[in-house]
């Protein structure tokens, strides 16, 4: 589903490389976890996958279902099934969450040549998804992310993800800001979306998320490179020992 080959990238107009040769293959149906110290380039990688133009790819390629993803505009990637749950979701004043959801769903449907959703159909979907994630009707009427608590923002991200039904889900520190109950609810929401047709990349610092969302593969990203890949036991090891062993090899 996703193939990243020798990806080098920097902030546009700046010299320092942030990604320094990332290689990563994620197959359909798999869940990969990416861990790594602060500033190692995890969010940068997720932004580049989503098409943020403040980063410049200097070398390498990214294939999404065999297609060159780097040539697609962000909204084309979204319509093709790429979803990013942001580490820091953005506020959109005056736009009710409900309205945002409808606009996004219909924009993607239109781009794929599908009919727009009827209002009753849309409402049915939203209500069902919101109930699973413990998101209240009241919250859906509020402007998106404006005044939402940290946990509410993360739940709103996963709500969008479940309604947009993407093929590739990239979750950037979705666990940060969640209380214990919310972590369970959100993880259940994510697990519901696990399917043989879908792939996920879960960026996190903590094992506790991976207790709920059990990954098939775990990677360590350090200084812009993947320095270690293993199974779920790697996350447990990191939890215990920290990154010290791997940071050196990346230098």
């Amino acid at each position: 589903m996703l193939e990243i080959k020798n990806l080098h990238a920097r902030v546009a107009d700046e010299d320092t490389e942030i990604l320094r040769g990332v290689n990563l293959t994620v197959n359909t149906g798999e869940v990969h976890a990416i861990m790594g110290p602060n500033g190692s380039g995890k969010s940068t990688l997720s932004y580049i996958l989503a098409g943020r133009d403040s980063y410049e790819v200097t070398e390498g390629e990214v294939l999404f279902n065999g297609e060159n993803m780097l040539e697609m505009a962000p909204d084309e990637r979204a319509a093709a099934g790429m979803f990013l749950a942001f580490q820091y979701p953005i506020e959109i004043p005056g736009v009710a969450t409900m309205e945002f959801l409808k606009t996004a769903m219909n924009a993607q449907r239109k781009a794929r040549g599908e009919d727009v959703l009827s209002i009753p159909d849309f409402m049915r979907r939203v209500k069902a998804a919101a109930a699973h994630l413990n998101v209240s009707m009241d919250m859906l009427k509020r402007p998106l992310n404006v005044g939402f608590s940290g946990g509410e923002k993360k739940r709103a991200e996963i709500l969008q993800m479940s309604l947009l039904e993407p093929k590739l889900c990239v979750l950037d520190e979705t666990d940060s800001g969640l209380d214990i109950d919310a972590l369970r609810i959100v993880s259940e929401g994510v697990n519901k979306l696990r399917s043989p047709e879908r792939a996920m990349v879960v960026i996190t610092h903590y094992q506790r998320l991976l207790d709920h969302i059990v990954p098939d593969v775990v990677h360590v990203l350090s200084k812009g490179r993947i320095v270690k890949t293993g199974d779920k036991s790697l996350a447990l090891e990191l939890e215990e020992k920290g990154y010290a062993d791997y940071i050196d090899t990346a230098a």
Partner: peptide, 11 residues
């Protein structure tokens, strides 16, 4: 804001 909306599929 622009990037967030585009990531959700808006032109």
């Amino acid at each position: 804001q622009m990037f967030y909306c585009q990531q959700r599929g808006l032109s």
